[in-house]
Simulated scan of single mutants.
Amino acid sequence: MKRANHILVGTDFSEQADSALLEAVRLARRHGSRITLLHIIDETPSDSRWMVFGVPPADIEDALRKRADEELAKRVEGICADVPTETDIVFGKPSVTLVREAGERGAGLIVVGRTGESMMERLLLGSTAERLLRQAPQMVLVVRPGGDPGFRRILAPVDFSDYSRDSLEVAARIARDENAELHVLHAYEYAGLAQIASATSITATQSFQEELEEQSRRQLQTLIDEVDLKDLTPQLHLRVGLAAQEIITFARDEQVDLVVMGSIGRTGLKRLFIGNTAERVIRSVPSSVLTVKPSDFRPE
């Protein structure tokens, strides 16, 4: 893990959020970091809530703050007992507020759990974790629920871009810190294979496939040599297929604890039509996921 001296943890007091906090505390102990445990109340109570509850909005806000204070205190005394931890409660939209607070507080890592938003909310808006990927310049760690803290097996998907090189370097540092296995995966597709197959012989088609595989193998080895992973003895894997699906399948089959990958933060129509591999992975992969942004990252 990059040495994040300050870790911002978002909590809604769910089991998923507590799993994220446990992992953040473990990382803070290892790296001597401090934690800000942040609870976000979704927007200031409105007149419509007043009508529902039959009490003034100010009283609703006070009640929400009181409950949140009690829940935060429980976690500081229990989970965070030996780690420097401050708590805060703010009103706002979770993803926007987490990004703003991380920037204002100088946090280098945002840690969240995988929340249980409804399918309709995910289809229309995306989960809080997915929105964080598009908006946060910091590293974002989305922690799988129910898993044991720690990373024994790490997967670094690469596509030979500068983004994936950066994420591979981060994955290597984590593997060294955790004394973990490092797996490096490149997934590629046979673009245009159908047209080639219809216009040439079976032998020519097979030759094209073999050439593409060999080219991918050479590029993967070149990347490994450039990043200098020899002390880790990484295991290299080539897969044919869509990147997101191959990452998810590999992580599930090999019981990967952490996937480390780059994310460039597409938004709007670009995300709708093109999508983002990191977002697709987070939706389905059984592992925790750490996304790494380029130094010049700007949300679109």
Rank of each mutant, 00 (worst) to 15 (best):
N5C: 13
N5R: 14
N5F: 11
H6M: 13
H6R: 11
H6W: 12
H6V: 11
H6Q: 11
I7E: 04
I7Y: 07
V9T: 01
V9Q: 00
V9F: 02
G10R: 00
G10W: 00
G10F: 02
T11F: 09
T11M: 09
D12C: 00
D12V: 01
D12A: 00
D12Q: 00
F13A: 02
F13E: 01
F13Q: 01
F13V: 04
F13Y: 09
S14H: 03
S14L: 08
E15N: 14
E15A: 13
E15C: 05
Q16N: 15
Q16V: 15
Q16F: 10
A17T: 07
A17M: 07
A17I: 09
A17D: 04
D18Y: 05
D18S: 14
S19F: 02
S19R: 02
S19K: 01
S19N: 09
A20W: 06
A20L: 10
A20K: 09
A20Q: 10
A20F: 09
A20S: 15
A20Y: 08
A20H: 10
L21P: 03
L21G: 01
L21Y: 01
L21S: 05
L22D: 13
L22H: 13
L22Q: 14
L22K: 11
E23N: 11
E23V: 06
E23G: 06
E23W: 07
E23R: 07
E23Y: 06
A24W: 03
V25D: 00
R26L: 07
R26E: 05
R26D: 06
R26P: 02
R26N: 07
L27W: 13
L27I: 12
A28Q: 01
A28K: 03
A28T: 03
A28N: 03
A28V: 07
A28S: 13
R29F: 10
R29Q: 15
R29M: 08
R29A: 07
R29N: 11
R30Q: 11
R30K: 15
R30F: 15
R30W: 11
H31L: 12
H31W: 14
H31C: 13
G32R: 06
G32P: 08
G32A: 08
G32E: 04
S33A: 15
S33I: 03
S33K: 03
S33W: 06
S33H: 08
R34Y: 09
R34L: 08
R34V: 13
R34C: 11
R34I: 09
I35L: 14
T36E: 12
T36F: 08
T36N: 13
L37F: 08
L37Y: 04
L37D: 00
L37K: 03
L37H: 06
L37A: 06
L38Y: 01
L38D: 00
L38I: 05
L38F: 03
H39Y: 07
I40V: 12
I40K: 00
I40D: 00
I40T: 01
I40C: 01
I41K: 01
I41N: 03
I41S: 01
D42T: 13
D42I: 09
E43Y: 15
E43W: 10
E43K: 13
E43H: 13
E43N: 12
T44K: 09
T44S: 14
T44D: 14
T44N: 15
P45Q: 04
P45C: 06
S46Y: 09
S46W: 10
